[in-house]
Amino acid sequence: MNLEDYRTLFIVATFGLALVAASPALSVAVPFRGGYERFSELWLLGPGHMAEDYPFDVAVGEDYSVFVGVGNHMGCSEYYVVYVKFRNGTQPLPDINNSMPSPLPPLHEFRFFVADGESWESLLTFEFQDVSFEDDSAYVGVVTVNDMAFFVESFSIWDSENSGFYFQLFFELWRYDVASQGFRFHNRFVGLWLNISVS
């Protein structure tokens, strides 16, 4: 290497070290925005706080419980609503492809705020009351969610393929959209199929 080569090497090394020294100022001028995917999680856990032992065969007048949870990875604090809805097998679910929620009215709702990287969880207990069976149909009059009774008056026809009268308790996740100043369906839902019986 001759002197010119050494000079070039010194200039490059000095420039590199100067960049390192200037990085705090550069971070102010050019704020780094994380390139990671922004999303929210919605989950349902069984009564043992595990992904098992979910209520399935349910009897009239008995309490059942699940944990519903939401995780925030949206990059900032979020304002969420979880709507608890009830349907029989023929009533509509949310349409994920078109980001449309189910048109069914919510029975119950949870409103909460979650910081980025944090999660929220709540216990939900439910019970069926005023249930009757006639030939090949079952009628559910009242669903109690967290000690609040809701009149649902829903019918389900006997499912011969799966041998049961099936209803579904499902949870929709909505988030507050600051730009539109309102809540929007966040394209996430989880459901719990329930086979109802007399005892």
């Binding site: 050494y6 000079r7 010194f10 000095t14 100067a18 020294a21 200037a22 705090p24 550069l26």
Partner: peptide, 25 residues
Amino acid sequence: VRMVGSMVGVVVVVFLGFVFWRVFK
């Protein structure tokens, strides 16, 4: 603080680079 620190840092690095270069040369 960051801006001033960075500027001082850059000046120090350039100055030391110059001094080292002179000594090396």
